[in-house]
């Protein structure tokens, strides 16, 4: 009985969280003023690869690392793979995965990159897959953008300027977890 109540409360929080989280975004789409959020609608096409909702998180002073996120869709009939990343502002950019193991956050470099199966979409998002910018020379500032190059096994290389969202942003529209 206690378990059921706890589960119900957890479910309620989850629903509330999702609602709070996604509601502002939905409103933004309905609204007339789309200024300043064009980036999230930009879709970059490189052969069969489509990159959407790319963003990096703003960094705190003295933080030499930053994370970049996006969704990648392989619209082709053949599997592809994201095998490399680079950025002018960072000494190094690596493809990483992080995950909570209990209450311990673990992060690893993916030496084989990220598989992009034909017809599927892979999401790089906070808490999971990301491009890790290391040795960054100056902070990533919200509202600016970071020049990034990505290399795919088959589709080749693409360069673009990745918009910088808030420090705790979960999307390119600058919406952050909680309020700020």
């Amino acid at each position: 009985m206690k378990k059921i109540i706890i589960r119900a409360v957890m479910a309620l929080f989850a629903v509330l969280y999702l609602f709070i989280h996604f509601a502002p975004r939905a409103h933004a789409h309905e609204g007339i003023d789309h200024s300043g959020e064009t980036a999230q609608h930009d879709i970059l096409v490189l052969g069969d690869i489509e990159i959407a909702n790319a963003f990096a998180r703003a960094t705190l002073p003295n933080a030499p690392v930053g994370g970049g996120f996006m969704t990648i869709t392989n619209t082709g009939a053949e599997d592809d793979r994201l095998i490399g990343a680079a950025a002018d502002v960072a000494g190094d950019a690596q493809i990483h995965e992080m995950a909570l193991d209990g209450d311990i956050m673990k992060m690893r470099a993916l030496e084989d990159g990220i598989a992009l199966p034909a017809g599927e979409t892979v999401t790089l998002a906070p808490g999971g897959l990301h491009i890790m910018f290391m040795g960054i020379e100056q902070p990533f500032v919200e509202g600016e953008c970071v020049e990034v190059r990505l290399t795919f096994e088959k589709a080749g290389e693409v360069g673009f300027c990745m918009p910088v969202a808030a420090v705790a942003a979960n999307g390119a529209d600058h919406s952050s977890h909680g309020s700020h």
Partner: peptide, 10 residues
């Protein structure tokens, strides 16, 4: 890259 800045902000 993520947990610490996010937690500080929270």
């Amino acid at each position: 890259p993520e947990v610490c800045p996010t937690t500080l902000y929270e």
